[in-house]
């Protein structure tokens, strides 16, 4: 089992330190602000978590977010219909995800390279479609997904919680979810015990792509504009959120609660650095330190448990 309580503890310690060190941190509005900022990162990282649990990797998530947001924006401008934008974002995300799934599970290209290839193809398609333009200005129905509030809590935070709960139910309560764990832990054994390994693998890549489509809608709602390259800053933080959350790159272990905590830790740190007015130059250094610290903590816990 992953060391989830330790990670929650680390997040709480971080929050405590920041509320002592800064004035603005421990306010209701700032905590909601952190949650809202974490939601985009979590959505991109959530599908990636499933892929990694299943023993794969998806480097195309940020590029997929970009392409889904750009196609959805173009679809809205062409039709004026929010429903068309939603359908395009989800459809585009799913299509890129299924392409990954087919390349990895059927053509059997190593996941690292297959998804690195689709990263470039999706980025290139976005560059070509947008040709240096920005598509902007969306109606309240779409903006609400990013900027709205329900019962005083930002809409994207509700979406994040819904995905975390639904994803957790899929992983831990459904037969297909358990089979994803088995596939990731030991592919050969999973196949021998009759698990449809290929279909499970395509399923997780498809879900990862679909989550990029959901994230694209939240992005459009929040930022109100789409341009090529918009997702690029999210790739490494998304991978880091999954890993800090304790999902193992060896497959077969992990969960969405961990990724949620990972995304919150990363977002809280950036928020804290901004509140303390620390230069952005230090952000990668701090992120790197946190990743290594999470690893070290796991190693210590594992040793003590053994």
């Amino acid at each position: 089992m992953n060391a989830l309580p330790a990670r929650i503890g680390a997040l709480l310690l971080l929050a405590l330190a920041l509320s002592l060190a800064t004035e603005g941190f421990a306010t209701a509005t700032n905590l909601l602000n952190v949650l809202r900022q974490a939601s985009l990162l979590f959505l991109v990282a959530s599908g990636l978590t499933l892929v990694i649990i299943g023993g794969g990797l998806d480097l195309s998530v940020a590029a997929n977010l970009t392409l889904s947001a750009c196609t959805a924006a173009l679809a809205f401008k062409a039709t004026g219909s929010v429903a068309a934008a939603v359908a395009t974002a989800l459809g585009c995300g799913l299509a890129v995800g299924l392409l990954n799934g087919l390349l990895v599970a059927v053509v059997r290209v190593p996941a690292f390279l297959a998804t690195y290839g689709t990263l470039w193809i999706a980025s290139g398609a976005a560059y070509w479609l947008m040709a240096g333009r920005v598509v902007y200005g969306f109606p309240p129905a779409l903006r609400g997904l990013g900027t709205g509030f329900v019962l005083g809590v930002p809409t994207p935070v509700w979406i994040m919680l819904a995905v975390a709960v639904a994803g957790g139910a899929f992983l831990f309560l459904s037969a297909a979810g358990r089979e994803v764990f088995f596939t990731g832990a030991n592919e050969e054994a999973a196949r021998l015990s009759g698990i449809p390994v290929r279909r499970r693998r395509i399923l997780v890549y498809g879900l990862s792509g679909l989550m990029c489509g959901v994230a694209a809608l939240v992005y459009l709602g929040r930022v109100n504009a789409a341009e090529a390259g918009l997702g690029d800053p999210l790739l490494l933080p998304a991978v880091a959120a999954v890993l800090i959350g304790g999902t193992s790159l060896f497959g077969g272990a992990g969960g969405l609660a961990g990724t949620l905590v990972g995304a919150l830790i990363l977002t809280t740190v950036t928020n804290g650095l901004n509140l303390l007015d620390v230069g952005a130059a230090w952000h990668p250094f701090v992120t790197g330190t946190i990743i290594l610290a999470a690893l070290g903590a796991d190693a210590l816990l594992a040793r003590r448990g053994a």
Binding site: L236, L243, G279, W282, P284, F285, T287, I291, L295
Partner: peptide
């Protein structure tokens, strides 16, 4: 340490980039 190379080197990537920038 028996830690996965992907994660370790992602961490040291951040350290090196951050140090160079800082």
């Amino acid at each position: 340490g028996g830690m996965p190379a992907f994660v370790v080197t992602l961490g040291t990537m951040g350290l090196a980039e951050g140090l160079a920038l800082a």
